[in-house]
Computed example of a mutant assay.
Amino acid sequence: MNIGHKLRTVRIAKKMEPLDMALKLSISETTYRRYERDESTPTIAVFHKIATIFGVKTSYFLEEDINLILPNLRCSTERTIKEYEQHIETLKQRIIELKTNQGRY
C-alpha cells in the first residue's frame, strides 16, 4: 500500500474530506489531493502534522515503503563492498609488482 493510499484510507475512516485536511495542514486542497494521488510527497513536518491529526505514528505511512527499499539498499551495499574488496586486491597485487620490480632498476 503506497503513502497516498494510506492517507486516503485513514482520512475516509476518520470521516474527513480532503478540504478538511488541507485546512488543518494550512495547504491547498489541490496539494493535499496530490499527496493522496502520490503525485507529490509531504515534507517531514507535514507528515508529522498528518500523523497527529490522524492519531497515528509517522512511521505508519512509511513502513511498507521502507521495507521495499531496505533489500535494495542491502544488495547495493554488498555489491559496493565486493567492488572495494576487489579493488584492494588489485592494489595489493600492484604493490607487490612494484616492490619486485624496484630491485631491477
Rank of each mutant, 00 (worst) to 15 (best):
F61E: 07
Q86N: 10
I81D: 08
Q86L: 09
K49L: 13
R34I: 01
F47L: 15
K57P: 01
K82L: 11
A13H: 04
H48G: 01
T41R: 14
T77P: 00
Q102D: 12
T9A: 10
T41E: 12
T100D: 09
K15T: 08
E85R: 11
M16D: 06
E85H: 11
L62Y: 09
V46D: 04
T77D: 05
K82Y: 09
P42T: 04
P42C: 06
Q102L: 13
H5W: 04
R11N: 02
Q86G: 10
P71K: 09
R94V: 11
C75D: 14
S28D: 05
D65Q: 13
L73A: 04
L7W: 00
I3R: 03
E64F: 03
E63T: 12
E17I: 10
Y84N: 08
L62P: 03
L7N: 00
T80L: 13
K24C: 04
L23K: 15
A45L: 12
I3G: 01
M1C: 03
T9C: 02
K6W: 02
E39S: 04
P18T: 10
V46W: 03
T30A: 14
I3V: 13
N67T: 03
S59R: 06
I50W: 00
T41W: 06
H5Y: 09
I3H: 00
F47K: 08
A45E: 12
K6S: 07
F61Q: 06
H87T: 15
M16I: 09
E64G: 05
E64D: 14
K6R: 11
N2A: 05
T31G: 01
E64T: 12
L70P: 00
N101R: 14
E36T: 01
A51W: 10
K57F: 06
Y35T: 01
L73T: 07
A45I: 07
D20N: 15
G55K: 09
K6C: 03
Y84R: 12
P18K: 07
S28G: 15
L19K: 09
K24L: 07
T77S: 11
K6Y: 03
K15A: 13
I53K: 06
R74N: 11
E63V: 10
E17G: 02
S40W: 05
I66R: 06
L25W: 04
Y84M: 10
E29T: 12
N2S: 12
S26K: 13
N67C: 05
F61K: 03
V46I: 15
I88S: 08
I53N: 08
E97P: 00
L68P: 00
E36D: 05
Q93H: 14
I95G: 02
F61A: 02
K49V: 07
I44S: 13
T58C: 11
P71T: 04
R8A: 07
I88E: 08
Y35F: 15
K24M: 08
S59I: 14
R104E: 10
E36N: 01
D65K: 07
I44V: 15
A45K: 07
